[in-house]
Each structure stands twice: as structure tokens, then as C-alpha cells.
Simulated scan of single mutants.
Amino acid sequence: MAVFVVSMFTARIMGFAMDVLGRDTVTSLMVNLAGACVLVATAYVAGWFKSQPWRARKGPRNAAPRCPQIPHGAGRRAHRQLRPRTRPEPR
């Protein structure tokens, strides 16, 4: 959405620039290249804002899983060995 809105504004400004500078081939190429650069920069800035880099991360990015992975076909015995043992609470 941000790129679309900026493109509408940029088109008006670039049209005005072409009215002032002329509408030959070199001017058209330069104006279109400048407009494309503005739109790409807008997309990068919008992406940066959407990533919210100012917020603290809740944990490390490549955190290890909480439970170790049990190989396929290991059976119940392997699962019991990896499961934490808990004692029942007294009544």
C-alpha cells in the first residue's frame, strides 16, 4: 500500500519534472529510473518499519527445541528415558 501511495505522488512530481526538462528520450529514461529508485527505496523502508526492529526479541533466533527429538522408530523406551520424571504431589 505504501508503494502505491508513493507512486501516485511520485508520478505527479516526475510529470512536472518532465514538463520543465522536456520529453526527449534521455530525460524520460532518467525520470523513469529515478521513479523506480524511489519506489524500491519506499519498499525497503516499509519493510524495515514492518519488521519492528525497535522491539526486543523474546528469545534467541536459533534456539534449541525444548524437548530433544526422538528418532523415528525408537519406541516407548526411548521416550520414557527422555521424558522428565516428576513425583506426584502429596495429598
Rank of each mutant, 00 (worst) to 15 (best):
I13G: 05
A63N: 02
T25V: 15
H79D: 11
D19S: 07
N62Y: 12
R77S: 08
I70M: 02
V5N: 05
V20D: 01
L29W: 07
V20M: 02
G22L: 02
W48A: 08
P65L: 12
F9H: 08
C37E: 10
T27M: 10
R76G: 10
A34D: 01
P53T: 05
Q52N: 11
A56P: 04
A17E: 01
A46I: 04
L21S: 14
Q81K: 15
V5K: 11
Q52F: 06
A34L: 11
H79A: 14
H72N: 05
R80E: 09
V45H: 07
A64T: 06
S51I: 04
L39F: 13
S7H: 04
V6R: 06
R76L: 12
G73W: 03
I70V: 15
D24R: 03
H72S: 10
H79V: 08
A43D: 04
M8W: 11
A64M: 15
H72R: 12
T42E: 07
I13A: 14
Y44T: 10
P68C: 00
G35Q: 14
V38S: 09
V26P: 00
T42W: 03
R12G: 15
A41Q: 05
W54F: 08
A63F: 05
R23F: 09
S7A: 14
R61L: 15
L29Q: 09
P53C: 01
V26N: 00
T27Y: 10
G73M: 02
P68D: 09
A11C: 06
H79P: 03
R23I: 04
A11M: 12
P65F: 06
P71W: 02
A17G: 02
T27F: 09
A43F: 09
A56E: 14
L33M: 14
A11F: 12
A36R: 00
G47T: 07
R66Y: 07
R76V: 10
R61P: 04
A78N: 01
C37R: 13
A17K: 01
V5W: 05
N32V: 11
P71D: 14
L21W: 10
F49N: 08
W54T: 02
V5H: 02
N32D: 08
A64P: 03
A46S: 15
P65K: 01
N62A: 10
N32Q: 11
A78F: 02
R57Y: 03
P65R: 06
M18C: 13
G47Q: 01
L29Y: 10
A63L: 09
R57A: 15
V20R: 15
W48T: 08
G75I: 01
N62E: 14
L33Y: 09
P71G: 08
R61C: 05
D19W: 04
P68M: 04
Q69C: 01
T27G: 03
G15P: 00
I13H: 07
L29C: 08
A64I: 10
G22P: 04
S51W: 07
V5D: 06
G22Y: 01
T27P: 01
V31Q: 14
W48Q: 08
T27C: 13
A43C: 03
F16C: 00
I70L: 09
V26L: 12
V31L: 14
A74M: 04
A43L: 12
M30V: 09
A36K: 00
S28D: 09
A64S: 09
